[in-house]
């Protein structure tokens, strides 16, 4: 009976220059299936490394489509609500309404009701020597939640590529898992992940579409276990709210 090579091992060989070991090479020579899988993985990797880019249609295209369909007799009941975000995003991203937590959101909504302090307005900041100036539209402090320690800041920037959020943190200890930046809607029901935050160096994140205008104003940094579960861990560490 032939045992095939583990996918994980094949992926490792595809990724690393070292390639298969002796027994691995023997198996690949005698097993077309594993050899084909390795070739597939190398092809996917080469394609991914070619830095493929997605383009987005203009926002008005969705209106044209829904207009055309509502003119169609028998389809008049079709009036899809506009996507929460997506068509108007400069770069394709996940839909913001995709990740949800429970109690964290209720807490966020309650927080939104009482917070709002610490918001200020800045001037112009230079991201780097070569990068064009981004306008700082708001600068807020991120405060630790009850029982948590740490602090941070979040600057709302208007750059050529759209809205950005520049997040820095201090006092977040390196522990198991990772820190993730979220924008939570003040309705307490929806949130979108902006990405992974290095607590040491901070980071600048693209804000997808027009979500700020839709009420995603709470900036939240959570500690996430590395468990493959994309949902908010409910373990929020620091938080602030952008002015409306």
């Amino acid at each position: 009976m032939t045992r095939h090579l583990d996918d994980d091992v094949l992926a490792q060989w595809a990724l690393e220059d070292d390639g298969p070991d002796g027994p691995g090479t023997d198996h690949l020579q005698s097993c077309p299936q594993c050899a084909a899988t390795l070739a597939e993985l190398k092809l996917v990797l080469a394609n991914a490394r070619s830095k493929p880019r997605l383009d987005s249609p203009p926002p008005e295209l969705w209106t044209k489509i829904s207009d055309e369909l509502s003119l169609d007799p028998g389809q008049s009941d079709v009036a899809p609500s506009a996507p929460v975000t997506g068509p108007d995003e400069p770069v394709a991203r996940r839909s913001p309404a995709r990740r949800f937590g429970g109690r964290a959101l209720a807490a966020a909504a309650a927080f939104a009701a009482v917070a709002g302090a610490g918001a200020g307005v800045g001037g112009t900041v230079l991201l780097g020597d070569d990068e064009p100036a981004a306008i700082v539209q708001a600068a807020i402090k991120l405060e630790p939640l009850e029982g948590k320690t740490g602090a941070g800041t979040a600057d709302l920037l208007q750059a050529a590529a759209g809205g950005q959020l520049k997040v820095s943190a201090s006092g977040l200890s390196a522990v198991q898992g990772f820190y993730e930046v979220w924008m939570i809607n003040t309705d307490g029901k929806r949130m979108v992940s902006l990405g992974v935050l290095n607590p040491g160096s901070g980071g600048t994140f693209q804000i997808p579409g027009e979500i700020l205008a839709q009420g995603y104003r709470i900036v939240d940094v959570s500690l996430e276990p590395d468990d493959g579960n994309p949902v908010h861990s409910r373990n929020s560490i620091i938080r602030g709210i952008l002015p409306s």
């Binding site: 997605l54 383009d55 249609p57 295209l61 969705w62 899809p80 996507p83 997506g86 068509p87 839909s95």
Partner: peptide, 21 residues
């Protein structure tokens, strides 16, 4: 279902548009 076209557009319009482009 009525809202599924909007969801499909949100999920795949970038893919369709980029292929066409």
């Amino acid at each position: 279902r009525a809202d599924s076209l909007a969801q499909a557009y949100q999920r795949w319009s970038n893919l369709v548009f980029t292929l066409a482009l």
